[in-house]
Write a protein that binds this DNA or RNA. Structure first.
Length: 256
DNA sequence: ATGGTAGATACTCTA
């Protein structure tokens, strides 16, 4: 089973790239973030023609997540239980081939200390409470998406430059660790220990050709699923295309 | 210290 995550920064702008990537990679599951459209404007048919089921949780202009899956998406959950209908749409969960898949677009946080930063930290605390109340670390589960956090300095191209900044601050890293302490393993780091491996490069300043990036897109799995992970990688090819997303797809393969 | 990019949308228009 191959599971992938990709922040596409508008599914409508990126449609052809996502189609091509699905044809070439055929993941069982692709979790999308920042689809930036309402459900009705999501281009579902092109993906259905490729054999994918489409599960959407969109909103106007910002955020929005979706799951494309070859098998049926069961027990679909949109947002945190009890969310206000107007809440930002950043979480979509479904059970696919017996694996609970949780697709997240964690708030960016804007600037350390800002109101949006506080919202990000509170959102991560809510995510931990969601795991405590609704999930079981002894069952196969993966949470993947754009976490907007580089967990360690080896996930940052210039740790001194980024020290204490948004995406790298101690409080963000602690909030992420509090979530993963629930019982989650970073499956990418099971297979790669090197620095310099990134999933996001700013559009500005020629960051991609200089490899000035951060690793902020992740797949974390519970132990019973993580131990079956045979490979994980970041596919930098789409980031080099014309009109790319600023994020690259991240993939994990499981022997199940 | 600042600005650098990309996207949807507003605006406006049409129905």
């Amino acid at each position: 089973m191959k599971i992938a995550t990709w922040n596409v920064n508008s599914i409508n702008i990126r449609l052809a790239q996502v189609q091509e990537w699905l044809k070439g990679n055929r993941p069982d599951v692709l979790c999308l973030q920042e689809i930036k459209c309402v459900d009705e404007k999501f281009p579902a048919a092109p993906f259905q023609e490729l054999g994918y089921q489409v599960t959407i949780f969109g909103q106007p202009t910002y955020n929005g997540v979706a799951i494309l899956s070859l098998a049926a998406a069961e027990d679909v959950q949109r947002g945190f239980p009890g969310d206000d209908p107007a809440a930002q749409r950043r979480l979509l969960a479904a059970t696919i081939n017996g694996v609970r898949v949780i697709n997240v677009y964690v708030p960016n946080g804007s600037e350390v200390g800002s109101e949006k930063y506080q919202f990000k930290l509170a959102w991560l605390e809510q995510l931990r409470r969601f795991f405590d109340a609704h999930c079981d670390p002894t069952t196969p589960l993966v949470i993947c998406g754009d976490f907007n956090i580089a967990p360690e300095d080896r996930d940052v191209h210039d740790p001194a430059l980024w020290a204490g900044k948004i995406l790298c601050s101690d409080a963000e890293r602690a909030a992420l660790q509090h979530v993963t302490d629930w019982g989650l393993v970073d499956v990418f780091r099971q297979h790669h220990s090197d620095a310099g491996l990134f999933s996001w490069w700013d559009y500005r300043g020629g960051a991609f050709p200089r490899n000035h990036g951060l690793r902020i897109d992740h797949l974390w799995a519970t132990a019973p699923l993580a131990e079956s992970c045979t490979a994980s990688w970041i596919d930098k090819i789409p980031r080099a295309l014309e009109k790319p997303s600023d994020h690259a797809p991240v993939v994990a393969e499981f022997a199940r």
